[in-house]
């Protein structure tokens, strides 16, 4: 479960029980970053990627951020997932105002971050025009890995008690080598059909 040494605590050996020294804010930050109760404000297509993120494959529970709370009063991380229209902005503002301090906001995807390509009368050009944002995750939609990057960035900010917004850097896929690509061959049974060529040592 990651860093089990809260805020660079100094553990002193020698006593029977043992004790540690740290600062209160560092200890609080360490505790908070592993118990993020999420309020998902999901409005658009990014929601599909948000569902993928919540699947076991990406295992949000590693970060202690898997528990959704459908009351903003019990949540401390507001996920804004998708396009926010001018008509929804008052609802978003009200949800944010109802959350208890300390609270954080993650802008999931390009629309929530900047309005995306909706550059018109109907869309808020980025939720930071209405509420403060801690982490921006670009992407249309962002890959779950990018969101995990954003979540770790947020945890880092919480641990350091840092409130300036951060932006997740886009990841670049490494170039694919030809040898790693699946090769196709014509099926022996039906020459019009292509089937994967089995590599050495592989069997049907």
């Amino acid at each position: 479960m990651g860093d089990m040494n809260p805020g660079g605590a100094v553990v002193l050996e020698g006593s029977e029980q043992g004790f540690a020294l740290t600062r209160v804010d560092a200890l609080l930050g360490w505790a908070r970053k592993y118990s993020l109760f999420a309020y998902p404000f999901v409005t658009a297509c990014c929601g599909m990627e948000f569902m993928a993120l919540n699947s076991p494959r990406f295992d949000l529970a590693r970060f202690g951020a898997e528990a959704p709370r459908f009351s903003p009063r019990q949540a401390d991380l507001l996920w804004v997932v998708g396009t926010i229209s001018q008509r929804q902005a008052p609802a978003l503002k009200r949800i944010y105002d109802q959350m208890m301090e300390p609270k954080w906001v993650l802008a999931f995807g390009t629309c929530a971050s900047s309005g995306g390509f909706y550059d018109n009368y109907t869309t808020v050009p980025g939720i930071d025009k209405v509420i403060p944002v801690d982490v921006y995750v670009p992407g249309c939609p962002p890959r779950p890995e990018a969101v995990l990057d954003g979540l770790m960035l947020l945890q880092d900010k919480i641990a350091r008690n840092e409130r300036r917004p951060g932006v997740v850097k886009p990841r670049v896929d490494p170039p694919v080598k030809v040898a790693e690509l699946v090769q196709l061959r014509r099926s022996a049974h039906d020459p019009s059909e292509l089937v994967p060529r089995l590599g050495r040592g592989e069997t049907k």
């Binding site: 001018q86 971050s113 009368y121 050009p125 980025g126 930071d128 670009p138 932006v167």
Partner: peptide, 23 residues
């Protein structure tokens, strides 16, 4: 645009609100 919620100013926010990289 005709916002229902008045936009935050940069003074209120304390950070630049112009679209940041990569936006």
């Amino acid at each position: 645009t005709q916002p229902l919620v008045p936009y935050r100013t940069e003074d209120e926010a304390g950070v630049p609100l112009e679209k940041q990289a990569p936006f």
